[in-house]
């Protein structure tokens, strides 16, 4: 191995060092330019995000440490609001109802759209008109839709009871019943959330290579076997994504439906955590306590999401 270095080689080395330094300087310069441009384009959105999302989130945490009713000066209480929430005898019922609503809504909203999307993708000429129909709930205001559902659920003149009366079932006061009010709220939430997930599944299904189905067909697989052994494994990333956003949506987005249909009643039977936060903040003006509840909900959503993130490695296939 040659260990000595000639002068010309040394000169070459110096030249190469010079160019490397220059290239790095140019690269750094380019990075600065790129960063500047990125900041310029992201700036407006970043400013809005900081003002309307980051700041309220931080301020919520700050408020949760105070007794605050807007109309009177804030009073520092430390973690008392969290302690009150944890030890409030109403909290277990509140959590139970939130879980009931979340599970009752999430499972159908994850499963049913997949079936509908698969059926729609094989509906031939009817696919387009059907897609237009299922997108209707998305373009309908949840409040307007809930008002219509309220009429559907009406005891004396609602369409649902009219339909049931034709088969001899006595009228049910769907929204004023301890047994049926929550299922009624869940049913409307399912109707409202299904269409968006159908769109996501439809996009996911289009990514499945057609030759896999051809191969399965050659091997004699039935349609159901193709669905179970080809479709489902291939779209597990989509299923995971749909599950996560649906769960978050259900836990934090139930307000509209509940507010219009039942306002959390009767006898708190449809009062879930997100609606209780609203009531405490804007009806009882316990801003600090409501903020503590909001952070408890955030923590719960974060933990559930992290658990799912860890578990997804066992069943989600990305390639």
């Amino acid at each position: 191995m040659q260990l000595s270095v000639t002068e010309s080689e040394l000169a070459g080395l110096e030249t190469s060092r010079f160019w490397r330094r220059s290239r790095n300087q140019i690269k750094e310069k380019k990075d600065w330019n790129a960063a500047l441009w990125a900041l310029l384009f992201l700036g407006p959105n970043l400013i809005l995000f900081l003002i309307f999302t980051a700041y309220p989130v931080g301020y919520g945490l700050y408020i949760s440490l105070y007794n605050y009713s807007i109309l009177k000066p804030k009073e520092w209480v430390g973690l008392e609001n969290y302690d009150t929430f944890i030890h409030d005898p109403k909290t277990p019922d509140l959590i139970w109802r939130s879980i009931y609503y979340a599970v009752g809504t999430t499972i159908p909203v994850v499963v049913l759209p997949l079936i509908v999307a698969v059926l729609l993708s094989n509906a031939g000429v009817a696919t387009r008109p059907l897609r237009m129909i299922y997108i209707l709930p998305i373009v309908t205001s949840p409040v307007a839709a809930a008002a219509v559902w309220k009429w559907l659920y009406a005891k004396d003149f609602g369409l649902i009871n009219y339909g049931l009366s034709l088969v001899g079932v006595s009228p049910v006061d769907w929204l004023y019943s301890l047994r049926w009010s929550m299922p009624a709220v869940i049913l409307m939430s399912i109707w409202l959330l299904i269409p968006f997930n159908i769109i996501l599944y439809t996009a996911g299904l289009q990514e499945v290579p057609g030759d896999l189905y051809d191969a399965a067909a050659v091997d004699g697989a039935s349609s159901f076997q193709q669905f179970r052994s080809v479709t489902v494994p291939m779209i597990t990333p989509t299923i995971f994504f749909v599950f996560l956003i649906t769960m978050i949506n259900v836990l934090v987005g139930a307000f509209d439906v509940i507010n219009v249909l039942t306002q959390g009643g009767p006898l708190q039977s449809t009062n879930v955590l997100i609606y209780d936060i609203y009531k405490n903040a804007f009806e009882n003006f316990r801003m600090g306590y409501a903020s503590a509840q909001a952070y408890a909900l955030f923590l719960a959503v974060l933990i559930i999401t992290l658990i799912n993130w860890v578990l997804q490695k066992r069943w989600v296939h990305y390639s």
């Binding site: 004023y176 019943s177 301890l178 009643g265 009767p266 006898l267 708190q268 009806e283 009882n284 003006f285």
Partner: peptide, 22 residues
């Protein structure tokens, strides 16, 4: 102060409790 607060909720819950047979 607020008619929508806890005081009125107590009335609403009481009315519901009777009407729902609780």
């Amino acid at each position: 102060f607020y008619s929508t607060g806890a005081f009125r909720q107590a009335m609403l819950d009481g009315i519901d409790a009777v009407l729902l047979g609780q």
